[in-house]
Design a protein around this nucleic acid. Structure first.
Lengths: 92, 92
DNA sequence: CATACATATCGACAAATGTAAATGTATAGA
DNA sequence: TCTATACATTTACATTTGTCGATATGTATG
C-alpha cells in the first residue's frame, strides 16, 4: 500500500526551521513577515517552508491584502496525530 | 534552542520503507531476515533503515546468535509521541 | 499610473538522503 | 578449521532537500 503520502506529511515536520515555525504558530496566527523576523532565513526559504507546511495540512493560511496569515490547522493537526499514532502503536 | 535533534528523530520516521517497517513491527518482534522478505529492498538498505530507527529510539534490538531481532520500543514510542505533541498542540 | 511593499516562483547549487554492490565481521554447524 | 549464514559497513551514485538571489505577481497608496 501507499506509505508515500504519509511519509510526505511526516517530512513536512522533519526540519528544524519548520519545527520552529510550528512552535511559533502555537502562540497565535502570524503573518509571514513576522515569522521572517523570528527565523534566520531568507524570504524565499520561508515561503518554501510555509508551502510544505500548508500542503501537509498542518498549517492554514488566510490572505488579507498583501499579507499572508498562517495558523495551526486544528483539523490537520488532529489528523496528523492520528496518522502518527497509527505507526507507533504498541498496544495489540 | 535545538530543534535539530527532534528534526532528526522525526526524519527517522519520514520514509515510506521505514513506515512499512514500523507497521510490520506492530505485529510482533521480527528478525532482519524476515523484514527483508517483506520489503522489496536490499539487505544493506534494510540495515541502514534499521540503524536510523534504532538510533531514533523508536525501535529496540536484541541479538540472538546470528540473528537480530527488532521490536517497537514502548518507551521510545511514548517519548516520540510526546515530542510530536509538543509541536502540534493547538490548545492554549 | 507609478511606486513601494509582501509574498511567491524560478534557477542554481551544496548538502543530505536512499539505494545497492562489494566487502567485512561474527556466529553456527559440519 | 572450513564453510555457510546473518548482518553491518564501506563506497559510489542518483535523487531529494534546503537554501538563497533574482525575478515575478499581486496589492495598497500617492
Amino acid at each position: 500500500m501507499g506509505y508515500r503520502e504519509d511519509a510526505r506529511k511526516i517530512k513536512a515536520l522533519a526540519d528544524e526551521n519548520r519545527l520552529a515555525i510550528m512552535m511559533s504558530l502555537q502562540q497565535r496566527e502570524k503573518c509571514a513577515c513576522y515569522l521572517l523576523e523570528e527565523l534566520n532565513i531568507s524570504q524565499s526559504t520561508l515561503s518554501h517552508h510555509m508551502k510544505l507546511l500548508c500542503d501537509s495540512g498542518l498549517v492554514d493560511y488566510r490572505k488579507e491584502g498583501k499579507w499572508m496569515h498562517y495558523s495551526l490547522s486544528e483539523e490537520g493537526v488532529n489528523a496528523f496525530r492520528e496518522m502518527i499514532d497509527g505507526y507507533i502503536r504498541t498496544d495489540n
